[in-house]
Write a protein that binds this DNA or RNA. Structure first.
Length: 961
RNA sequence: GCUCUGGUGGUGGAAUGGUAGACACGAGGGACUUAAAAUCCCUUGCCCGCAAGGGCGUGUGGGUUCAAGUCCCACCCGGAGUACCA
């Protein structure tokens, strides 16, 4: 065996071997237990992989290989989230077809990934832009289109069954998720024509077309989902986003809000991620209450309210609905607020207020989302002149309009309780509206709200000034008020969610086409047998002159209903040939169900076979970034729940355990140029005053352990050619800072360079050694030498000992079994950084002992195989095996080999000797004393016969000498 | 503001409530070498001391406990998510 660790020769050789022998190919048929380990598949960007990407892949690869060694049949696939904006933006700039760019990028990604030695089953690769893949994305969309959500059954049902129901019962007894509440009879339904029926059904479909306020990004020329917008700017590009009413496809994800909340209980995710999702879904319990209006208008008439109000007014009483989480404060309502979009405004505004209200509404509606959010603190609003009646106090309450009430949440109308809501408080103060205290921390103790500096929002204390609930605790009062409201028939308990339906159209080219064509402006799905509906070629990737999406440029983009095929657009006659949908699906469409497709990726007949999903069930371990908490991870859960309702997915939750790998930040290096002398660079330690120098980013590839390679620096740019350096100890020391990893900061570390220099095994170990997988951390190559040194030592241990084989000593076995125990525990809790340390300790100890026993060296190779597969494979064969190490068996821990000392340590304590002892819970004082006396070093501590012995709880014994 | 996280040497980071700082980097010293690389050995939390040894130490202040980095309460500081969600 060669003495030197030649990773450059070993690694490619085994990578070829694995590929040629299909070592990582996984079968759907196996007697073994199954385990599914999934990485979030990457978007293949033009920049290639940097060291941050493989962090999660390495962790999941370690776990996959470990599970395999433990006898599991492990599914560990990889693919590409290939649709996306950057390729398309690039296409717009250069005319290069996104498919070509994407293909090139994928090729580069694959090369980079292959060098790191992953155990992916590449036969199962999927690409979201592959027609054979997006066929099933389109198929799922059609199923969503053909489904509605039954709130009583709490599951999706077919639209066909809804039609049957309408024909027989109308909406009677129907409780379904919908855009707006509808009420009609079977007779009405049966009398309607096709167009009207389709329009009604659209109100219930899980994938529906509707006019909704959307986030329109003019710069990107498309609408965006809520999670793609932060602070009024697009996540991609940071362009301003405005609210716009547009006819768009949406997914009725809100129907699943409750199940999305409930499902979090069943999964093994971090609390923080579950919390992110809970916040995003934003479930709040409260009451819907109808407030009768004190004017005559055409607003809805609610039977209950009318019955109540008819005591005072024989005429029908119009009313409107509000949502509150604090029904207990209803006695403190001093005004009402409608959102500027509220339909009631026009009807209720009094003539004298009309001009002012209209002006305000126009102003508020035209304000960009960005402006609105920037001026959140600024109070604005206007009085409508109209009044509502508080159904419990029978007071007349003024109705205002303000943009602090949002159209999209609840009913877009609130009862304002300024004493107990900070926003209402600010509003009341600004407009001089009354503030009435109805909750107090102490019973019957009130103060004058005029003296308050802030409202009392906490849901604690007692009701005061509150009619029949006065004196009750807040929680009781809430219940009592709702009960009363329900009894009066003017409201009910309800739950509201912050979650919005997912806008599903993008006015873009590079995405999945909708399998939809329009007959009479009514959308119809193309037959499932005709899928995939392939993305057509276009001559221009920009929107058309008339403002249509890029697909408007496609010549061949019309649907021939008779011949069931795509034909030239020129043939559209709206009799047999119809226009196809022009927008495409968003990025999350393709990534929402990919984990299921991996189970059976080449299936042409179905998304995946029943046999495959019955075998694999769902993802056991999912590894990826937490930045997908409000996007992909919500959509994928929704997608899976829907497929579960259809009976395709067999588990309600797609990802059982989820690990969020922390982001790897860049570590930038700086040189410091003197402000007096542009050619003089001062070493970090010699700078007296930072004001005298300018910090300049330098490429981290010219820096080693913060020492600058001055020659490379001089060659870097012409202006540095004559650079002079003020050195410390003959070196130029650079400064550093943690920043985002990006080209412009010259701090991008490319994994290929490290693989070339140290080998893949070192890179793998080092990425793990850097710290806990979940933690965000800056990339820093300063420690990589240590890991590399370890692998060289590890290699040498075998090189020295392979020839002479001896029986293992007790000491060697102890080291081995300690290592087995520790490594197994570490892997099970994803603590891979400590695993690397354990290997280092083990190797040092065995080297000191000059260990040469196969009985110890062989299992050690298996232990390290998940972490450093190449060196393990090589040593495994050197040890004389002709099977691969991937098929070895994980060594079994033998506790007998670890002789634990019962007595841990002695300490002096108030003149007593105290000993920690490990004894069974049933042990007596005599047992404890015996253990101390027979401990290896007993003579050293017990210099005389004990005078007194105190056996304190469980593990302690105090001995007075 | 709310929610979630985290705070340990010069650095990255270890510690089922049980000898804090494993392991690694960096630094200092030494061996080998003509020299360098590579390799190996020693020291390395802070303070006092030649030493043996002693004192102090896990953001701050309290508490529970025989025992607290770890559990509880309050506060301070960082990171992330979210933001007029009624």
């Amino acid at each position: 065996m060669k003495m030197d660790y030649n990773f450059g020769e070993i690694e490619p050789r085994w990578q070829n071997y694995w590929r040629e022998h299909g070592v990582y190919h996984v079968s759907n048929q196996s007697e073994k237990p199954h385990y599914y380990v999934l990485d979030m598949f990457p978007y293949p960007s033009g920049a290639g992989l940097h060291v941050g990407h493989p962090l999660g892949y390495i962790a999941s690869d370690i776990y996959s290989r470990y599970k395999r060694l433990r006898g599991y049949n492990v599914l560990h696939p990889m693919g590409y989230d290939a649709y996306g904006l950057p390729a398309e933006q690039y296409a717009i700039q250069t005319g290069q077809h996104p498919a070509i760019t994407t293909e090139q990028n994928i090729k580069r990604y694959r090369e980079q990934l292959d060098k790191i030695g992953f155990s992916f089953d590449w036969d199962r690769e999927v690409r979201t832009c592959d027609p054979q893949y997006y066929k099933w994305t389109q198929w799922t969309f059609i199923q969503l289109f053909k489904s509605y959500y039954d709130n009583k059954l709490q599951r999706a049902q077919s639209i066909a069954s809804l039609e049957a129901r309408f024909a027989e019962w109308g909406t009677d007894g129907l409780d379904a998720a919908c855009t707006e509440e509808m009420s009609f009879t079977a007779a009405e339904w049966n009398a309607w024509d096709e167009a009207k029926r389709q329009q009604v059904l659209m109100n219930y479909r899980l994938a529906y077309l509707a006019d909704t306020y959307v986030n329109w990004c003019a710069e990107l020329g498309t609408v965006l989902a809520n999670d793609e917008v932060v602070n009024g700017l697009s996540v991609r590009g940071g362009y301003p986003v405005e609210r716009k009413l547009m006819r768009q496809w949406s997914l009725r994800i809100t129907a699943y809000a409750q199940r999305l909340v409930d499902g979090l209980e069943q999964v093994d995710w971090t609390d923080s991620l579950k919390e992110i999702q809970r916040n995003w879904i934003g479930r709040s319990e409260g009451a819907a209450v109808w407030f009768p209006l004190d004017v005559k208008c055409n607003a809805n008439v609610l039977p209950g309210a009318q019955a109540y109000m008819s005591q005072f007014d024989p005429q029908p009483v119009p009313s409107f609905e509000i949502f509150t989480t604090r029904p207990d404060t209803i006695f403190g309502v001093t005004f009402m607020v409608l959102c500027p979009e509220h339909e009631l405004i026009d009807q209720i505004t009094t003539a004298d207020r009309k001009a002012e209200v209209e002006e305000y509404v126009t102003w508020a509606k035209n304000r960009s989302e960005r402006e609105r959010q920037a001026e959140v603190k600024k109070v604005s609003g206007v009085f409508t002149g109209a009044y509502a009646v508080n159904p419990l106090t029978e007071e007349r309450i003024p109705i205002w309009v303000s943009d602090y009430v949002l159209a999209g949440y609840g009913t877009g109308a609130i009862m304002a309780v300024p004493a107990h809501d900070s926003r209402d408080f600010a509003f009341a103060r600004h407009f001089g509206l009354p503030i009435r205290q109805v909750v107090s921390l102490e019973k019957d103790v009130t103060s004058d709200p005029a003296t308050w500096t802030e409202s009392m929002d906490a849901k604690t204390g007692y009701s005061v000034n509150s009619g029949f609930v006065t004196g009750m605790k807040v929680k009781e009062a809430m219940k009592a008020v709702i009960d009363k409201i329900e009894a009066m028939g003017i409201g009910h308990r309800t739950v509201n969610y912050r979650l919005r339906d997912a806008i599903f159209s993008r006015q873009r080219y590079w995405g999945e086409p909708f399998p939809i064509y329009y007959k009479d402006n009514t959308p119809y799905t193309i037959p499932e047998e005709c899928l995939p509906l392939e993305l057509p070629e276009v001559k221009d990737f920009k929107p058309t002159a008339t403002g249509e999406p890029p697909l408007g440029h496609a010549e061949r983009w019309a649907w021939d209903e008779e011949n069931r095929c795509v034909v030239e657009k020129s043939r559209i006659d709206n009799k047999t040939v119809f226009p196809l949908e022009l927008s495409t699906m968003p990025g999350f469409a393709g990534s929402s169900g990919y984990y299921l497709r991996y189970m059976d990726p080449r299936n042409d007949e179905a998304y995946f076979s029943e046999q495959a999903v019955q075998y694999w069930q769902n993802v056991d371990l999912y590894v990826g970034g937490a930045e997908h908490g409000t996007g992909h991870l919500i959509y994928a859960r929704f997608w899976n729940k829907f497929l579960f309702d259809l009976g395709l997915a067999v588990k309600e939750e797609p990802f059982q355990k989820l690990i969020n790998q922390g982001m790897i930040q860049g570590r930038s290096n700086f040189v410091y140029r003197s402000k007096q002398d542009n050619n003089l660079f001062v070493s970090k330690g010699l700078i007296k005053n930072m004001d005298e120098v300018t910090a300049i980013h330098v490429d981290i590839n010219m820096v080693d352990n913060d020492v600058l390679d001055v020659e490379r620096f001089r060659q870097w740019r012409p202006e540095f050619a004559d650079a002079r350096f003020e050195l410390e100890d003959g070196k130029y020391m650079c400064g550093w800072e943690v920043e985002k990893m990006s080209k412009s900061m010259y701090n991008v570390q490319n994994p290929d360079d490290l693989v070339a220099r140290y080998g893949a095994d070192t890179l793998r170990l080092y990425e793990m050694f850097l710290g806990p997988v979940e933690q965000a951390k800056p990339w820093d190559t300063n420690g990589i030498e240590g890991v590399f040194r370890f692998l060289k030592k590890f290699w040498k241990l075998y090189a020295n000992c392979m020839t002479a084989q001896t029986d293992p000593t007790k000491e060697e076995l102890k080291i081995l079994h300690q290592t087995i125990k520790k490594i197994t525990e570490d892997i099970e809790r994803f603590s891979f950084n400590t695993s690397v340390s354990t290997f280092m300790i083990c190797t040092n100890q065995l080297t000191d002992l000059k260990c040469a026993s196969r009985e110890v060296l062989e299992p050690l190779v298996v232990l390290i195989a998940p972490f450093a597969p190449h060196i393990a494979e090589e040593l495994w064969h050197q040890l004389g095996h002709d099977t691969t190490v991937c098929d070895a068996t994980w060594p079994v821990f033998d506790p007998q080999q670890l002789v634990e000392d019962t007595v841990k340590y002695p300490v002096q304590f108030n003149g007593k000797m105290r000993f920690m002892i490990d004894l069974p819970a049933t042990a007596t004082q005599t047992d404890a004393l015996e253990a101390v006396k027979t401990a290896p070093d007993a003579a050293k501590w017990l210099t005389s016969e004990p005078k007194k012995v105190i056996f304190v709880p469980k593990k302690i014994i105090n001995i007075v000498l």
